[in-house]
């Protein structure tokens, strides 16, 4: 392994092909992603790990403050649930956001994102909590009646069996009818990684 200042990062010659194998990325793209990871993981604490504050900083340009959606993204990226995002977790999660990633994976990721309590269902209370969070984030206000009306309308459309919660099949049907809901599950930048982070060639140990 290299990067002696970042001993916890196991970016070994064997790790890169392994990650390329496990994801949609080529070996050179994994190396280019490492350039992005290095920037993100050193923005506050230079330890080769992405802390929640560093994710918050990248997304909101401020390290402080709480955001429900940053928490959810962080939790889903943090596969090992050890409170930090490691390089392999970063590559695994971003693979789902690649334009060529299977639609099924994007649908599943979005479902897990919105299933706040991880019960296997997106419940009405969770949707209400998320709508309140986005209203607060955007400094918008809505009366409780309007808020309930929006949620009623959404559940009338999405909750086919009318049990007050959205299961994974209902979610799939709903997003296939409303594909714009998956728009933020695709990052076009991921198709141009080696162009965006050309400095990877100085560190490359592999040829694609």
């Amino acid at each position: 392994c290299f990067e002696p200042r970042q001993p916890r990062l196991k970016k070994c010659a064997q790790e890169i092909p392994r990650l390329a194998n496990e994801t949609i990325f080529t070996t050179n793209e994994v190396e280019a992603l490492y350039e992005l990871f290095k920037k993100l993981s050193s923005s506050i604490i230079d330890d080769g790990l992405i802390h929640k504050e560093e994710l918050q900083l990248a997304l909101f340009q401020t390290p402080s403050g709480e955001n429900l959606f940053v928490d959810r993204i962080f939790d889903l990226f943090d596969e090992k649930k050890n409170g930090v995002i490691e390089f392999d977790e970063f590559v695994h999660a971003l693979s789902v956001f690649h334009p060529n990633a299977p639609m099924e994976d994007k649908i599943d990721f979005a479902f897990r994102l919105y299933d706040l309590r991880q019960t296997g269902f997106i419940e009405r209370e969770e949707v209400k909590q998320m709508v309140i969070a986005i209203l607060m984030e955007s400094d918008m206000t809505l009366s409780d009646d309007l808020l309930e009306a929006i949620i009623d309308k959404t559940f009338a459309d999405a909750d086919a069996d009318k049990d007050g919660r959205i299961n994974s099949e209902e979610w799939k049907d709903f997003v296939l009818r409303n594909p714009n809901l998956l728009k933020n599950m695709t990052l076009p930048y991921l198709k141009d990684l080696t162009t965006l982070f050309p400095s990877f060639v100085f560190n490359t140990k592999l040829e694609d």
Partner: peptide, 25 residues
């Protein structure tokens, strides 16, 4: 107009879910 949207359209507007910002560094 938020009232014309379904709840998930509103939610998906969060900056916290816009990961393209990760590349603005």
């Amino acid at each position: 107009q938020p009232t014309a949207m379904n709840a998930f359209e509103l939610i998906s507007m969060s900056k916290g879910l816009n990961l393209s910002n990760l590349f603005d560094i």
